[in-house]
Write a protein that binds this DNA or RNA. Structure first.
Lengths: 245, 245
DNA sequence: CGGGTTTCTCAGAGAAATCACAGCTTGGGG
DNA sequence: CCCCAAGCTGTGATTTCTCTGAGAAACCCG
């Protein structure tokens, strides 16, 4: 089931109307905190664990609808944790966190059941998007919720990564896509550059703050080019997107 | 009966509309887990067993529509298990798992009854495809469900392994065929290289991830050659197939 | 056993995306 | 009406990703 909150955000809910539950497992506390905060903001209920045993215990009594699992835990190897989780929660989708370089070596089979993974360092927007996808597809949330965001005559499909304005297809790069997704997820709301940076860029990004301006500029060229603009600047505050009308 | 889920995947269902039930029997837990995960993702209901006696017991009260049976079990020889299964479930099709070298001849006789087999290490795409075939042919699912995938002017027949584009026959190798099947089963959806690798290559594949790029390249030569391309790259995300239109 | 086929590795070429930097434009307070 | 801070965008260096040719090894079939 989906419902729209007072702020205009669309939330995933379970069929019985209760909030989706997500278990976050990582040994770095800064990461679990970062994730918990971001995921709570989605309206989800979060529990976190710092090691494999904690994860198994939490799975048992928290009974999450999805799990975010770091593959590098101090006490147990990621696959063992996965195995034990599966015993208690056979149908729960898992989002794996892996180091960038470790990717190739044994992700094999992990995404087979519809699971997914992201590499560290990740962007929150990416984690949230993938989790939403997993939950949506697992059926823990209402299956009718679909993967297309719409604002005015602008659409963005999270599955096919297709973007259209007034019916015309628009090609976006990965970063442009994530930025637009974030804007469209928060229509008519001013988002500060800091928020955007925190959400769309990976947490260890150390560059110039004006990448945001730069990418807003790219997006405008592709989306607003010669049309009624949808992306607006609020000088000193940030940016927002809203229907052209 | 077939039905189409929100993600656009086509599911097999039993005539009464309930999900298909599959029993998975293997002594290696990692294998039963891998298979269970993949088969659940197909929308099927799964039960697993780790030995012959467990299998017989499970067959009796789970009453599966199909069985995946490893021929090498610790407690009983595969043939005895098969015999006992047949006593309770005379018409249920069985997909045998055998070691690569484990003689074809004995298996060959077994598959005469409409059963089938795959050799370890297998690719999930192959197991799923064969199981679908068995279930479809056994009549447990609606017989009208057919075996041809169509995307635009591209067709792929899972029974005859025939592929055509705009009416012209196209010869594909085994790997190319499985890759294309996977793409066509998920039209308009971006599939990451990891997903493709997990699904199309066998679970013990340890090679370079760029085999995926390589085979995409092969497929393009055969399918898109000099025509409107149907296979698209989403840089940094993966590949997808969609009608040329 | 031998030839054709298939699978896969490796490596280089090329294309695309990301980002820093710097100069230019704009808005609005004084 | 002027000026400054905030925002915008062109240029180009660098990094990252993708494609594909060449060839080695495994495989299949007769």
């Amino acid at each position: 089931m989906t419902t729209t909150s007072p702020q205009g955000r669309t939330e995933l809910l379970r069929p019985d109307g209760s909030p989706v539950r997500v278990l976050v497992v990582d040994d770095e506390q800064s990461i679990t905190e970062l994730l918990s905060m971001a995921l709570r903001y989605e309206g989800w209920q979060i529990r976190s664990a710092g090691d494999g045993h904690g994860a198994v215990r939490a799975a048992r009594d928290f009974r999450p609808d999805a799990v975010v699992l770091d593959m590098m835990l101090p006490d147990m190897d990621g696959l063992s944790v996965l195995g034990r989780l599966r015993r208690d929660l056979p149908d729960v989708p898992v989002l794996f966190l892996t180091a960038k370089d470790a990717v190739e070596d044994r992700i094999a089979g992990l995404t087979a059941g519809g699971d997914d993974y992201v590499t560290k360092p990740f962007s929150l927007e990416e984690v949230v998007a993938r989790l939403r996808g997993l939950i949506r597809r697992s059926g823990a949330a209402d299956r009718r919720s679909d993967s297309v965001l719409v604002v005015g005559d602008l659409t963005l499909d999270e599955d096919s990564h297709e973007v259209t304005r007034g019916g015309d297809g628009i090609h976006l790069t990965a970063t442009e896509f994530e930025l637009l997704r974030f804007l469209m997820r928060n229509p008519r709301r001013v988002l500060s550059k800091a928020q955007i940076l925190d959400r769309v860029w990976s947490y260890d990004f150390g560059g110039q703050a004006n990448v945001v301006e730069l990418y807003i500029s790219y997006l405008r060229r592709k989306i607003d080019a010669g049309r009624e603009p949808m992306i607006h600047t609020r000088r000193g505050a940030g940016y927002l997107i809203k229907p052209a009308a």
